[in-house]
Amino acid sequence: MNQARWLVATFVILAALSFIWGHNPDQVRLKDTVYGPVIAVVIPNDCTLKGVGCDLSLGQIGNVLVRAPKEIKPLKKFSLVVEPQGDASKSMGAVSVDFQMVGMDMGINRYPLTRSSDGNYAQNIILPVCTTTRTDWVADLSFTTTAGTFVAKIPFIVDHR
């Protein structure tokens, strides 16, 4: 009987910790309020998020380089960096990314990027493991600027564990 109590208590504690870990208050928040038009960013055919990065045009605002390390593995921390090019940093406000897997519920994987003193935006990210072993993700980036909000959806593949 004692073993059953320990088993139930362990299960309850693990369930509570899983709930708390999966509902980080910093990441469970409403999307940034959008003022002005929402503009879809055309993703270039040669766009490679991992490694070299992807150069995106935000119309009259200018270009931004979005890059991640050459290797991204589930449950391993990696850094996503957005580098405004030229005068783009003057018009850039908030930058955030929401990672999604098409047709799957992978929980909330939304990260606001923090602006550093050099004008770049960055955030350390950890993606969950897909139980069906899928590796295809979409980085849904939002750039809030003085000309409106630009949205870019960049597909990429994570590396196997």
Rank of each mutant, 00 (worst) to 15 (best):
N2P: 06
N2Y: 13
Q3D: 13
A4V: 13
R5D: 13
R5Y: 14
V8H: 12
V8T: 15
F11M: 09
I13T: 10
A16K: 06
L17W: 12
F19W: 14
I20M: 11
G22W: 00
G22N: 12
H23Y: 06
L30A: 15
K31L: 13
D32I: 10
D32Q: 07
D32H: 12
T33R: 12
G36T: 00
P37D: 14
I39F: 05
V41G: 09
I43R: 05
N45C: 09
D46C: 01
C47Y: 01
K50V: 09
D55V: 15
L56C: 04
S57T: 14
S57I: 05
L58V: 06
I61H: 03
N63H: 15
L65R: 13
R67D: 13
A68R: 02
A68K: 02
K70S: 15
E71V: 15
K76V: 04
K77G: 02
L80A: 12
V81P: 07
E83S: 10
G86S: 07
G86L: 11
A94D: 13
V95K: 07
D98G: 06
M101R: 00
V102F: 10
G103K: 02
M104H: 12
M106T: 03
G107Y: 03
I108T: 08
I108E: 00
Y111G: 04
Y111L: 05
L113E: 02
L113F: 00
R115E: 11
S116R: 09
S116V: 09
S117F: 11
Y121N: 00
Y121S: 03
N124Q: 11
L127Y: 00
V129F: 04
C130V: 02
T131A: 13
T132E: 14
T132V: 11
R134T: 08
R134P: 06
V138Y: 05
S142T: 11
S142V: 03
T146A: 14
A152L: 04
K153S: 15
I154Y: 00
P155S: 04
I157W: 07
I157R: 09
V158S: 05
R161K: 11
